[in-house]
């Protein structure tokens, strides 16, 4: 991405990701040589401003969780760069990275799996502060009580174990733990997908409230488009390791340009039986990222008429309106019926 193409939501950006690639080697043969690569994230550029939520949507296997992990440096990117508050963290070693980790934390999908069952809730929430050498024991204990209040759990919870809590409460513990070190950015990887609807809305309200009060920035990764739209300022749509469209949340739903975005929106069930539609669903599935088809991967899936043209092209995001970026793929953009089955 060149200088003038800098993809920024607003002026002061906290996180800048440029041309990020995360490939995993595939080994095989007699000497376990590398025979290929899973291109989980294949050239992604984005930025998140202070106090902003960027929603990241896409189907399973599109690389959205890998992207989240690469951003918080739980993975070492293959190429490209991640900078946080102006520091390039792409190639930092774990030791150099540790003090910076205070500023960005991650919340995982399944709190039952991401919280150590042998630690009390108090220990779980205090652990990030211990690692960051924040305060003494007494100060940490006070801070834990404060955090539990903040996420709506009783203070008595700190003596209990995570498995004694329901799914929604466990996710609150996960959020309290992430907030312990006063981060600026939270990467939320499917934070409400494992929760029941009535609990889901409680956790979403908590996240929005925390953002307002603490000025947090979120990268909100989810597959539920209605949820993502509700909490996000801007949304990026990912397909097979690449962002195909990114724009303001309302605009994306009002005026989607990429055929894949349109197909995703059309697939959401509408909670109103009187508006039942008789739509033909999108055919096919996300192809394997091991040997992705050349050119536009989505055009290939739906056998779009213009697919052949895309093979020779350098497909990248172009800004078609202020803040609205769409891949310049000839087969999926600008043709209403590019998706084949998508109603125009």
């Amino acid at each position: 991405m060149s200088e003038e193409d800098n993809i920024t939501g607003n002026g002061s950006s906290l996180l800048e990701v440029e041309e990020l690639k995360m490939h995993f080697p595939v080994r095989g043969g007699l000497f376990s040589r590398q025979v290929g690569a899973v291109r989980a994230v294949d050239g992604v550029s984005l930025s998140i401003g202070k106090g902003e939520t960027l929603g990241l949507v896409g189907e399973s296997g599109c690389g959205k969780s890998t992207l989240g992990k690469a951003i918080v440096r739980l993975l070492k990117p293959t190429a490209g760069s991640v900078s946080f508050k102006g520091h390039d963290i792409t190639h930092m070693g774990q030791r150099a990275l540790r003090p910076l980790r205070q500023d960005f934390q991650m919340v995982f999908q399944d709190p039952a799996e991401s919280l150590d069952a042998r630690m009390s809730v108090g220990e779980l929430v205090a652990e990030p502060m211990v690692i960051q050498r924040m305060g003494d024991r007494q100060q940490r204990r006070e801070r834990v009580a404060e955090l539990l209040d903040r996420v709506g759990l009783p203070r008595s919870a700190s003596q209990k174990y995570s498995f004694e809590f329901s799914g929604g409460q466990r996710q609150r513990i996960g959020i309290a733990r992430a907030l312990a070190v006063n981060p600026d950015l939270l990467v939320l990887d499917e934070p409400v997908s494992a929760l029941d609807v009535s609990v889901q809305s409680q956790v979403l309200n908590l996240l929005m409230e925390l953002q307002r009060e603490l000025g947090l920035s979120y990268l909100f990764i989810a597959h539920d488009l209605a949820v993502v739209k509700h909490v996000s300022d801007r949304i990026a749509v990912m397909y097979l390791g690449k962002i195909v469209e990114m724009s303001g949340a309302d605009e994306l739903y009002r005026d989607p340009h990429h055929a894949y975005t349109e197909a995703l929106i059309n697939a959401i069930p509408v909670s109103d039986p009187s508006q039942r539609r008789d739509h033909e669903p999108l055919e096919g599935e996300v192809p394997s990222p091991i040997n992705p088809p050349p050119g536009c991967a989505f055009g290939h899936r739906v056998s779009a008429p213009g697919y052949k043209e895309s093979i020779e092209m350098d497909i990248r995001l172009k800004e078609i309106a202020p803040g609205h970026w769409v891949s310049n793929c000839p087969c999926c953009v600008g043709q209403q019926s590019a998706g084949g089955n998508i109603e125009s």
């Binding site: 609807v197 809305s201 409680q202 209605a226 909490v231 949340a249």
Partner: peptide, 20 residues
């Protein structure tokens, strides 16, 4: 309560969701 608590595409962004 269930019907009210689901986020809908047409609901206002970042508004507080009704909860049970």
């Amino acid at each position: 309560g269930l019907l009210a608590s689901i986020p809908r595409l047409e609901s206002e962004r970042k508004s507080e969701l009704p909860t049970i």
